[in-house]
C-alpha cells in the first residue's frame, strides 16, 4: 500500500517536473559502454565523502547503499568485513583514495569496481522535508575508468496519508528521526542508482542496454 502511494506521488511529480521534449534519448548501451565492456561483478562501497553539515549523513548513506546495489544484481563486499579490510590497508578514507589508482583493490580483494559517494548538502526545507545534493561514481579498479556517474538533488517529503492535517503532522513527528533520515538516504540511493546497469545476479543482466537513461544531473522530489 505504501509502495503504491509512493508510486502515485512520483507519477505526478516527475511527469509535471519537466515536459520539455528532447530530440535524443540516451541509452545505457552508449552511455555506459565501459561498464558493459568490463562487466564488474564485485563492488566495494567506500564510506561516503561528507561535505554537508549533517555529520550522520555519512553513516545513513553508507549503510543504505548495500541493498540497492545488491538488488541490482551486484556482489557487494559486506559492510562489517569491508570496513575491517579498508582499515587493515589504511584505505578507510575515500578522500585519500579518490582519483588514485584502485588496482590494489582488484589484486588484493578481487574487487572489480569501487563506489564513491559524495554528500554535498543535506538540509531541511519546509515542514518535514529534506533536500540532499549527492553524487555517485562507480570506478573500475583495473582500468580506473568511470563506469557510472550521476549527481542530483533529491527532496524528500515525509507524509502521512490520513485525512486530517493534525493527525498527519503528529504522525510525521512521531516517526523517529532515525526512521525519517534513513528513509531519506534510501530514497536518494534508489534514485541515484536507478540508471546503473544491472549486475550479474539480475535477470536483466546485459539485457538492459536499450533502456533510456536520465540526465547526468537530476533534480527530483519524492514523497513517502
Amino acid at each position: 500500500m505504501k509502495t503504491k502511494y509512493i508510486l502515485i506521488v512520483l507519477l505526478f511529480v516527475v511527469v509535471f517536473h519537466s515536459c520539455a521534449p528532447t530530440n535524443q534519448m540516451a541509452l545505457k548501451r552508449s552511455s555506459y559502454e565501459d561498464y558493459y565492456e568490463e562487466k564488474p561483478a564485485c563492488v566495494m562501497i567506500m564510506p561516503p565523502m561528507n561535505k554537508s553539515t549533517k555529520v550522520e549523513a555519512k553513516q545513513f548513506f553508507y549503510v543504505t547503499l548495500v541493498q540497492p546495489l545488491v538488488e541490482k544484481g551486484f556482489y557487494v563486499v559486506p559492510p562489517y568485513m569491508g570496513i575491517e579490510m579498508l582499515k587493515n590497508e589504511s584505505a578507510y578514507d575515500a578522500e585519500d583514495l579518490y582519483g588514485r589508482s584502485l588496482l590494489a583493490a582488484s589484486t588484493t580483494w578481487g574487487v572489480d569496481a569501487v563506489l564513491f559517494t559524495t554528500i554535498y548538502d543535506w538540509k531541511k526545507v519546509g515542514t518535514g522535508a529534506v533536500m540532499v545534493d549527492i553524487s555517485y561514481e562507480l570506478r573500475s579498479t583495473t582500468s580506473n575508468k568511470v563506469l557510472y556517474k550521476r549527481r542530483g538533488d533529491v527532496t524528500v517529503y515525509m507524509t502521512s496519508n490520513s485525512g486530517s492535517i493534525l493527525v498527519n503532522l503528529a504522525a510525521i513527528a512521531l516517526k523517529t528521526a532515525f526512521t525519517r533520515e534513513i528513509s531519506v538516504a534510501k530514497s536518494c540511493n534508489v534514485i541515484g542508482l536507478a540508471d546503473l546497469p544491472y549486475g550479474a545476479h539480475s535477470k536483466l543482466y546485459l539485457n538492459d542496454k536499450d533502456t533510456p537513461i536520465g540526465e547526468d544531473k537530476f533534480s527530483i522530489v519524492v514523497s513517502q
Binding site: 512520483l10 516527475v14 515536459c19 534519448m25 540516451a26 536507478a194 533510456p212 537513461i213 536520465g214
Partner: peptide, 9 residues
Amino acid sequence: RKVFHLIFL
C-alpha cells in the same frame, strides 16, 4: 525521456 525514465523508476 522523462516519461521513459519515470516508467523505469
